[in-house]
Amino acid sequence: MIINHPLLGPRDAQEFTYLGDAALINRPDWTSENALREFHDYLHLRDNPAGEHRELWFHEQGDRSWLVVTRNTVTHEISKVELACDVARASGRSTGRDEGQVA
């Protein structure tokens, strides 16, 4: 497979290490009332879709960027590649300093 790295252009998938579902970005708040249940679900429950899947790839043999790759698990067609840090920021992640503070 070829992954179109947002900074480096098309790169062979062999340069990357695969992690899994991009939902791993959404790490729960450790101070939440249901933190135990939320961390359990975060860590162990994954969707396994036959079709479009957002997943994390690490450019280990390259620039060491974590990427969110939107890939069709049936056809392997890759429709989108983003820097994981951008995705994380867009989903509200920052420094973790605000966690545990009452909104």
């Binding site: 970005i25 840090c85 920021r89 420094t95």
Partner: peptide, 15 residues
């Protein structure tokens, strides 16, 4: 190293 980069980029990107 891989896990530290994951934490840096994916969990706390603004540190």
């Amino acid at each position: 190293y891989r896990n530290m980069e994951f934490a840096r980029q994916c969990l706390w990107p603004d540190l």
